[in-house]
């Protein structure tokens, strides 16, 4: 279970200081290039030449690599290995063990998929490492996202640790009363109800009071919202975004244009 529910790490860097929307555009550009770039090494090159330098500039190279190794590599790596082994097709056999054969073409295709997934996910991870969720949501709200979305995202991130704490308490309580997660299948199904019941009903009944509480504080107000924190949007931000959007358009047009 994670200790903290946002990746965000405060650092004094030029990447942290960028407007969240600029960083989001950057991620979008990287994803677009990764998707439409036809080259075998496109995703790998983007990771090495875009994400790693960005993480370095953000003074988060170590943390970025940590996230990549701990979270993304297992997923992407597992897929790569499994697909290389089990997906049939391809003619150039490079390895054989009994009935299982590995072909060069399958390995290449698997690498392409895995490296793309690695690219997309780590691009988002970098965004989340350098941007506080509250800052991101505030900025998106200022740009026209309905404010309710910001409420949903932030309060979800805050409710989950409490719910997890609650479910750990319930599991501990049931263990002290003899819960055995190793017992028979039917018994374990029977255990689900006393575990899930208190957790779910408690939090569902709270919904009404919490709705009243935020309505009492103008949640449904039709006034134009204001914001406690200013999220700076500099000329540099606007310049970077313009360039990125131009690059995206060029890439898409070049790709879709019938050649």
């Amino acid at each position: 279970m994670p200790d903290r529910l946002s990746f965000y790490l405060k650092k004094n860097s030029i990447i942290h200081a960028l407007n969240p929307f600029t960083k989001l555009t950057l991620v979008f550009a990287i994803v677009t290039y990764g998707l439409i770039g036809a080259g075998f090494w496109t995703a790998t090159i983007l990771v090495c030449l875009a994400l790693l330098p960005l993480a370095f500039t953000a003074r988060l190279l170590k943390e970025y690599l940590g996230v990549a190794v701990k979270l993304i590599l297992p997923t992407a790596g597992f897929m790569f290995v499994m697909q290389s082994i089990f997906i049939p097709g391809g003619t150039t056999e490079i390895f054989r063990l009994g009935s299982i054969s590995i072909e060069l073409e399958t390995v290449q295709r698997s690498y392409l998929i895995a490296s793309r997934i690695f690219l997309f996910i780590s691009a988002f991870a970098l965004l989340l490492l350098t941007t506080h969720p509250s800052e991101l949501m505030t900025n998106l709200t200022q740009r026209g996202l309905p404010p309710q979305f910001a409420y949903v995202i932030i309060s979800t991130l805050q409710i989950i640790p409490q719910m997890q704490a609650k479910s750990l308490t319930i599991i501990a309580a049931q263990r002290s009363r003899g819960l055995d997660t190793e017992s028979s299948f039917i018994k374990r199904i029977g255990l689900l109800v006393p575990l899930v019941g208190p957790l779910v009903f408690g939090s569902l009944v709270e919904v009404e009071e919490r709705a009243i509480a935020i309505e009492a504080r103008g949640f449904t107000s039709t006034h134009k919202k204001t914001y406690l924190h200013e999220v700076p949007d500099t000329n540099l931000d606007r310049a970077i975004r313009t360039i990125l959007i131009a690059l995206i358009i060029v890439a898409v047009v070049w790709r879709v244009w019938p050649s």
């Binding site: 805050q158 009071e209 504080r217 103008g218 204001t226 406690l228």
Partner: peptide, 30 residues
């Protein structure tokens, strides 16, 4: 009302922001 826990909006990370939540909603200048 009674239960303090349910009155926390959940949309904010600090007490200062939490108290400002209502004022943001009704559009009070910064």
């Amino acid at each position: 009302f009674q239960n303090p826990f349910n009155q926390i909006s959940g949309a904010k990370y600090t007490v200062f922001e939490e108290i400002a939540f209502g004022l943001e909603n009704i559009g009070v200048p910064r």
